[in-house]
Simulated assay, not measured.
Amino acid sequence: MHGEYKVPGGKLVTVDLSVADGLLAAVRVAGDFFIEPDEALDDIDAALRGLPATADAATLAAAIRAGLRPEAELLGFSPEAVAIAVRRALGVERSWRDHEWRILEPAPLPPTLHLALDEVLAREVGAGRRSPTLRFWEWERSCVIIGAFQSLRNEVDMAAAVRLDVEVVRRISGGGAMFVEPGTIITYSLYAPAELVAGMSFAESYAFLDDWVLEALRSLGLAASYKPLNDIVGPLGKIGGAAQKRLGSGAVLHHVTMAYDMDAQKMTQVLRIGREKLSDKGTTSAAKRVDPLRSQTGLPRAEIVTRMRETFVARHGGTPDEITAEEYAAAETLAREKFASRDWLERLP
């Protein structure tokens, strides 16, 4: 059996192996990577031989790490990369751990740049130039983000938006409008390879991609659950909503906004939204705040984000990363030429 894995931004790892009595045998790892000393490559092969062919990627990577001599240096690849190549050789169904996840937590950014980064990073993942990535957003200013297929005039009171200094932008995914002020919500995006949700319906993929969030919220004492098609809810109503875009490049963009402590009175001035629409968002009056995460957990926003990141890493792996200069440059161009343009904003007047 033969498997290959190209580390995004790194080297190619190949694995040839056979299976005897359900165990890995005749394992040979190769590739255009660097490893010192040479004998450390034999350590990797030896660590894999005899492991169950049903072992998941995390188990395989842990065995490799334990089997490597202390002075070994791996350049351009990692034990996780070898584990992924082994799983591909075995032809098993891909899971979260069959990818090397990266986690981004950049400084606050303007709305149009956030939206442009979503498109750029998703395309980079689809093209294999970036590992699958989780990005937490921080907002530089207040804004309304409408869905790709919403009518601008039906959703937003533009005069109120100008008066209250609220920027209005349109994203590439569908779904409803969101009102955002810095520090009042939690927003994140997943940029995943399409193979992670292969064979799933849209409805199934929404719940699948956000299951780790439910675990994080429940660990904080909030009885969170998923309400089809795309809502995260608690005992008192809606906490947040998800949206998704599947790109032709082979990537899935999945992003979620959850209310921490929003000013509902200001929101209803900008959004053309009735009180009945607010009734499933944790409040019964537009004069009150929409604060399901703050009131139901009693925790600062930063602690909730930290628990979410820790939960994701514990379940799926992930290492801190940075947005590259090239990605920022591409996003800045896209923000200027597309997301900041009136043609895009008013594509559905």
Rank of each mutant, 00 (worst) to 15 (best):
G248W: 08
K281R: 09
K281H: 07
V180K: 03
R153T: 15
L196W: 05
Y226H: 15
T187N: 14
A159M: 08
D261L: 09
D263K: 14
S225H: 09
Q265T: 07
I239T: 10
E167H: 15
A177H: 03
M178E: 08
E195G: 06
L217C: 00
L152S: 12
Q150E: 00
V156P: 03
A242E: 02
A161V: 02
R218T: 12
G274W: 07
M200K: 14
G250T: 04
Y191D: 05
V270G: 05
G240H: 02
V290A: 13
M158K: 14
I186N: 06
A264L: 14
K227E: 15
L271R: 01
A161S: 14
Q269T: 09
Q244P: 07
K266W: 09
H254M: 04
M262N: 08
Y191S: 02
R170T: 05
G234H: 01
D231L: 04
R272T: 07
K266P: 02
V252D: 00
P228A: 10
Q269K: 09
V162E: 15
A243G: 00
G237M: 15
L271C: 13
A242Y: 05
I239R: 00
S219N: 00
S249P: 05
H254S: 06
M178V: 14
F202S: 00
L278C: 12
L293E: 01
L190R: 04
A287D: 02
Q244C: 05
L209F: 13
T257A: 13
S173N: 05
H254E: 07
E195P: 03
N230Q: 15
R272V: 04
V197Y: 02
S219R: 15
Y191W: 10
E167D: 07
R246V: 11
G234R: 11
L220N: 09
K288T: 11
L229S: 08
A259G: 04
R275A: 10
L220H: 04
P193D: 10
A161I: 10
G175Y: 03
A242V: 01
A223L: 10
M200P: 06
L253Q: 01
K245I: 00
A159Q: 12
Q265I: 00
P228V: 05
R272Y: 00
V256H: 06
Y226V: 13
D210Y: 06
L220S: 01
S219T: 13
P193E: 12
L278P: 00
A287G: 09
M258L: 15
K288D: 08
S151F: 04
I186Y: 01
S249T: 14
G174P: 12
S173I: 06
D231Q: 09
D231H: 13
P182I: 11
L253I: 07
N230V: 12
A286I: 11
S225A: 13
D261H: 13
V197R: 03
E181Q: 13
V156L: 09
Y260L: 07
G221D: 10
K288F: 10
V213N: 05
H254C: 04
F202P: 05
T268F: 12
A198S: 14
A286P: 06
E276V: 15
L190Y: 06
D157T: 03
N154I: 00
I239E: 02
A242C: 14
V162S: 05
V290D: 03
A224D: 01
G240I: 01
E155F: 10
D261R: 12
M158V: 13
L190F: 10
T184Y: 03
E167N: 10
Y260Q: 09
A243E: 03
A207I: 01
Y260D: 03
A287M: 11
R289W: 02
R218P: 07
I232A: 02
T284D: 08
A286H: 13
